[in-house]
Computed example of a mutant assay.
Amino acid sequence: MSKTCLVVDDSKVIRKVARHILETLDFSVEEAGDGQEALDAVARSVPDVVLLDWNMPVMSGIEFLRALGERNVQPRPKVVFCTTENGTAHIRAALDAGADEYVMKPFDRDTLASKLQFAGVA
């Protein structure tokens, strides 16, 4: 059975690129355009991993992470944070809020594959 990934990003282009990469890695992919859509998607069906953007309207990636923690979703999906913010404070905040790994944008297939491996889902 293939693993499932929820790609959360307000950019359609990034979602498309991520979906393409993930499908070559044998993931089945769902998409959400912001943190609130992502929470709704997780409530319907918990993915193995969430590929999460930081800066989004409605609900940011970090707010989504906190909300996910509060809902105590089981089994908890792995979260790989995607960000253009490479400040260590940002990365620290993401990890503190419950992210398992992070990947810098723009990412390629190899980078994403290795991050998913580190997170234990590849």
Rank of each mutant, 00 (worst) to 15 (best):
T4D: 11
D96Y: 07
E30D: 06
L25H: 05
D9E: 07
R71F: 10
P77R: 01
D100R: 08
R71Y: 06
P75Q: 12
A119K: 06
V42R: 06
F107S: 00
L52A: 09
S28V: 08
L51T: 04
M59T: 06
V49Q: 02
K16D: 15
V50K: 06
G87E: 12
D48A: 08
S11V: 11
E23Y: 02
I21R: 04
R92P: 01
M56H: 01
L39V: 03
A43H: 07
N72V: 04
V79R: 02
N86Y: 11
L39F: 02
P75F: 10
A43N: 08
F64I: 07
D26Y: 05
G61H: 08
L39N: 01
E85S: 10
V46N: 01
H20C: 09
E23K: 11
T4H: 05
N86D: 14
A94H: 09
L52F: 06
C5E: 01
Q74K: 14
S11R: 11
A43R: 07
P47L: 03
N72D: 14
D53C: 02
D96S: 14
G98H: 15
M59K: 09
A67H: 13
K105H: 14
V80M: 04
G87D: 14
G69Q: 15
G61A: 04
D9R: 05
H90Q: 11
T4I: 03
K3A: 10
T88K: 09
R19F: 04
L112Y: 06
T88F: 10
M104E: 15
R44A: 09
L22R: 06
M104C: 09
V49W: 04
M1E: 11
F118R: 09
